[in-house]
Amino acid sequence: DEEIEKWIETLLKRNISLRVNGKDLEIGSEEFKEWVEKFIKEV
């Protein structure tokens, strides 16, 4: 979905790490990609 890709790009540009389930996810890491894929499937 384009919306999500733009959102991810924005996050990448800002180099933010997300806190997911109490863990810091490094943007661009494998864990982050897995989380994004799960997130996309749920939406």
Rank of each mutant, 00 (worst) to 15 (best):
F32D: 00
E2S: 13
L12C: 09
E34Y: 13
D24Y: 12
I4R: 04
N15Q: 12
V43L: 14
I40N: 01
L12D: 00
E34F: 14
D1T: 12
E37P: 01
K6L: 05
E34P: 02
D1L: 14
G28L: 07
S29N: 03
L25C: 14
E31C: 12
E30N: 08
L12Y: 05
V20N: 02
E31I: 06
V20L: 13
K38G: 05
I8H: 00
W7P: 00
D1R: 15
E9R: 11
W7I: 05
E5T: 10
W35M: 03
T10V: 07
K13N: 09
N15V: 15
E30V: 10
N21T: 02
S17H: 09
K41Q: 08
E5V: 14
E26F: 11
D1S: 11
N15R: 15
V36A: 07
E2K: 13
K23R: 11
L12E: 01
E31G: 07
S29L: 12
R14G: 13
I4D: 02
E9Y: 10
K23Q: 07
L25S: 03
E30L: 12
K41N: 05
W35R: 01
N15S: 12
I40M: 08
F39V: 05
E5N: 12
E26G: 08
F32L: 05
I16T: 07
I40A: 04
I4P: 04
N15Y: 15
E3H: 10
S17Q: 10
E30G: 06
I40W: 12
K38W: 14
S29C: 09
I40F: 11
E3I: 11
E2Q: 13
I4M: 07
D1K: 13
E2T: 11
S17R: 09
I16F: 02
W35Q: 01
E42K: 12
E42F: 15
W7H: 00
E42T: 11
L11Q: 01
E5I: 14
E26A: 10
K6F: 09
N21Y: 07
E2M: 11
K6R: 11
F39Q: 03
E26N: 07
I16P: 04
E9V: 09
K38R: 12
R19W: 06
L12P: 00
L12S: 03
L11S: 00
L25F: 10
S29E: 02
E37M: 15
K38P: 00
G28D: 07
K41R: 12
N15W: 15
N15H: 14
W35I: 03
E26K: 10
G28T: 07
G22A: 02
E42V: 10
